[in-house]
C-alpha cells in the first residue's frame, strides 16, 4: 500500500498530474482548434500548479519579509518562476488564437478535420 500512501501524502502533485493528463487528452483527441488551445491551457495550468506546490512548506506563509518577525516562508523560487511561466502561457495562447482567426477566415471553420477534408477536396 506504499503507492496509495504516497499518493495520499502527495495529493497536490496527484491532482496536478490528473489535470495535466486531462489537458493532454483534450489536446490529442479533439479536432476543434479552440478546444485544442483550451487543452493546452489546462495542461500548462496543471504544470504551474505542480511547480508552485513543489515550493510549499508546511505552515509556511507568503514570502514577504516583515521587520522584526521570524516566520517560516514557503520556498519563493517556484512561485517567482511561475510568474514567468504564466506570461509565456498567455503569449502562446494569444498567438495560437490569432492563427485560428486566420484559419477561420480562410476556411470558414475551426475544425482541423474539416480543414483537412476541404484541402483534400481541392486537390
Amino acid at each position: 500500500m506504499n503507492i496509495i500512501q504516497g499518493l495520499v501524502d502527495n495529493y497536490f502533485y496527484f491532482a496536478s498530474i490528473v489535470i495535466f493528463l486531462i489537458g493532454m487528452h483534450i489536446m490529442l483527441t479533439h479536432s476543434n482548434m479552440i478546444k485544442k488551445i483550451m487543452g493546452m491551457n489546462i495542461m500548462e495550468t496543471a504544470i504551474f500548479l505542480f511547480v508552485v506546490s513543489i515550493g510549499y512548506v508546511d505552515g509556511g506563509s507568503a514570502p514577504i519579509v516583515i521587520e522584526g518577525q521570524t516566520i517560516r516562508f514557503i520556498n519563493p523560487l517556484p512561485s517567482a518562476l511561475i510568474l514567468t511561466g504564466l506570461v509565456v502561457g498567455v503569449s502562446l495562447t494569444a498567438f495560437a488564437l490569432s492563427l485560428v482567426i486566420e484559419l477561420y477566415k480562410c476556411y470558414g471553420t475551426t475544425d482541423s478535420d474539416e480543414i483537412m477534408a476541404i484541402r483534400r477536396r481541392e486537390q
Binding site: 499518493l7 502527495n10 496527484f14 498530474i17 512548506v57
Partner: peptide
C-alpha cells in the same frame, strides 16, 4: 506519472 508521484519527496516537508 502517478507511480512517480507516490515516490516523490513528501509534499510540504521542510526536509525536502
Amino acid at each position: 506519472l502517478l507511480y512517480m508521484t507516490s515516490e516523490m519527496p513528501r509534499f510540504g516537508d521542510p526536509a525536502n
